[in-house]
Nucleic acid binder design. Sequence first.
DNA 1: CTACAACTTAGAGCGCGCTCTAAGTCAACT
DNA 2: AGTTGACTTAGAGCGCGCTCTAAGTTGTAG
Lengths: 131, 131
Amino acid sequence: MEQQYLSIQKISELTGISTYTLRYYEKNGLIHPITRAAGGRRQYSAGDLEWIRFLLRLRTTGMSIRQMQQAAHLRRQGPSTAKERRQLLEAHLESIKKQIEALQEHQDAIEDKIVVYKQWEEDYPLKEESK
Amino acid sequence: MEQQYLSIQKISELTGISTYTLRYYEKNGLIHPITRAAGGRRQYSAGDLEWIRFLLRLRTTGMSIRQMQQAAHLRRQGPSTAKERRQLLEAHLESIKKQIEALQEHQDAIEDKIVVYKQWEEDYPLKEESK
DNA sequence: CTACAACTTAGAGCGCGCTCTAAGTCAACT
DNA sequence: AGTTGACTTAGAGCGCGCTCTAAGTTGTAG
């Protein structure tokens, strides 16, 4: 029999989420109750890891704890919530698209500003046209 | 004589930044000391407004207060800091590009997940293949 | 004349998302 | 037998970026 379960420490290393935060997420329903080994130790499955990585995706794209709670809640209801989960993700996808659009616009504006500074660099140290 | 100056209230309306925050930014050096009218009231110029809008750009692209302080500080030194300012912006531009890349990757992953849910929606309510 | 808006300093409070401590228990490893 | 790592609950603390209050002053508009 292979040891297919992962300790909280290992999960922490694999995901970059601290053990504190992993317990905090579980306590707050972002992660379902992880099965326990003797002595009450958490043993994470590959599926658990996958879910945590998905959470990480949501988190780094700006989803709040509250919304992640909602997503996890729906997931625990089983496949009958597929539609709601899809809708939640679609809404989040929209938000990601808007973030990207906004960032691209800002990127352009900042690139323009950089061009202005480059011009100044050429002008300033040579002549005193401080205009 | 035209009234070319704007009150703090007006700036707040034009930028969406509260008057509290505008004063907070000024106190913390993100905004240079605004010229005062009789009684010490701030009168913002068009240039001030422009700078505040630029700050907003930096803020919404994830720049911290500290970095914005730095940007404002360089600006107050005059055109001789053009190079440093350019470098600061270039570094920030890099960070924006990385944000966009990461978001796009997450976008793809979430789109895939949505496809999975759509499949479930077709499968689940019809048959009991809860595999 | 009276509202109202703005000003000042100094500091409290808040929501978010962790992060850590305390204090005690338990089990596996060496 | 001792060390290590995990566990529990409950709660404090923190960094960030505001947000607001207090309390008193002064100027402008109707």
